[in-house]
């Protein structure tokens, strides 16, 4: 079984989109993560769900749980409103890091190894020019594994 057999279409976001759009897209579509693409449709960043959530947390709190603890309940409940109009590019954790992708011929083992290595429940599948064809999700991969073993 190869990546081409598991690939599925998902909505993507651009670096110029507001973080609030990215968060609401993920929540409405029940996605495990998001792919940020450039103008040519090539994956720029792969963001697991927790990293999309991280973008919604004001940078001052990120990595500083002691500071997050000092915030009173009323403000803590509305933490995401402090973001304003910040974009995905403004908030992405490692802007210079290359997106990890696979091609259509990637095997199950290859994809499982990569997902585990980069802690991502979503892997972008790209064509020869690096353009996004779709994604393989953790759920899809796991259900395939279960089906394979059952058969």
């Amino acid at each position: 079984m190869r990546a081409r057999d598991l690939v599925q279409q998902v909505p993507t976001v651009h670096g110029s989109d507001p973080v609030t759009r990215a968060v609401s897209l993920m929540s409405q579509e029940k996605l495990p993560g998001l792919i940020v693409v450039d103008d040519k449709g090539r994956p720029r960043h792969v963001l697991p769900g927790t990293q999309v959530l991280r973008m919604a947390v004001l940078h001052a709190y990120q990595g500083d749980t002691a500071l997050a603890r000092t915030i009173d309940e009323e403000h803590a409940d509305n933490f995401w409103t402090e973001l304003g109009h910040r974009t995905v590019t403004d908030c992405v954790a490692a802007p210079g890091q290359k997106a990890v992708t696979v091609t259509e011929d990637a095997t199950l083992l290859e994809m499982a190894t990569l997902m585990a290595k980069v802690h991502s429940p979503v892997l972008p599948v790209v064509d020869g020019k690096g353009v996004l064809l779709g994604v393989v999700t953790l759920t899809r991969l796991l259900s395939t594994l279960a089906l394979e073993s059952a058969s």
Binding site: A66, L67, R69, T70, I71, D72, E74, H75
Partner: peptide, 13 residues
């Protein structure tokens, strides 16, 4: 008042 609502004691766990 919004500053006075901060709970500095909780910073030290």
């Amino acid at each position: 008042e919004a500053v006075m609502a901060l709970q500095e004691g909780r910073a030290i766990k």
